[in-house]
């Protein structure tokens, strides 16, 4: 009993999206969210389901260069967009951010880490030399209960330094 999300009329629209460098031509339900599209349709389970209300950042991905909560973006909106998820940070192996996270032991249980990485990647792509305060602010929407916040901040700053 109680409230469930209302149903969307079962209508599909065609979208052309680029995800991690691969082009997809898809028919998506208008009520499908980007998060579910990535996880269920494209098998990219790096983006996680947690609060589903834009508070925790576990679902963060990069859309057209900006970090967003994919749980609040409709898949149809992504038509023509360029999307990067954690799986696409590096073509092979790990990118500088991911390596830095390993070096600084920033990942504990790891569940929030894809979201943290995407927020960090979006930050460094536009601000390659952030201050500690700027890192904290850019990642403020990514909750971590293991609370590896100090290590995550260190890792982002170290990655910024390494690629300068």
């Amino acid at each position: 009993m109680g409230k469930s999300p209302g149903a969307w009329i079962a209508v599909t629209r065609h979208v052309e999206i680029q995800v991690n460098g691969a082009h997809w031509s898809l028919d998506v339900g208008t009520g499908t969210y980007l998060l579910e599209l990535l996880r269920d349709r494209l098998d990219l389970t790096g983006a996680k389901i947690c609060c589903l209300e834009g508070e925790c950042g576990a679902c963060s991905v990069i859309v057209d260069g900006k970090s967003v909560n994919s749980c609040l973006v409709l898949a149809v909106e992504a038509d023509g967009a360029v999307i990067t998820t954690v799986e696409g940070l590096a073509e092979n192996g790990l990118d500088s951010l991911q390596s830095s996270f390993l070096e600084k032991a920033a990942a504990q249980c790891g569940f929030c880490i894809p979201g943290q990485l995407m927020a960090a990647r979006a930050l460094l792509d536009t601000n390659p030399d952030p201050s500690e305060g700027e890192v904290r602010e850019a990642l403020a929407g990514n909750l971590c209960r293991c609370a590896g916040y100090p290590q995550i901040t260190d890792a982002v700053l170290a990655a910024a330094k390494a690629t300068r």
């Binding site: 998820t85 032991a105 990942a107 569940f111 894809p114």
Partner: peptide, 18 residues
């Protein structure tokens, strides 16, 4: 480095829901 670290930072680690 953490054993299971690369899986966590690459997003390949499968939690139950994945």
């Amino acid at each position: 480095p953490r054993v299971g670290g690369p899986e966590r930072v690459s997003g390949s680690l499968e939690y139950v829901a994945d």
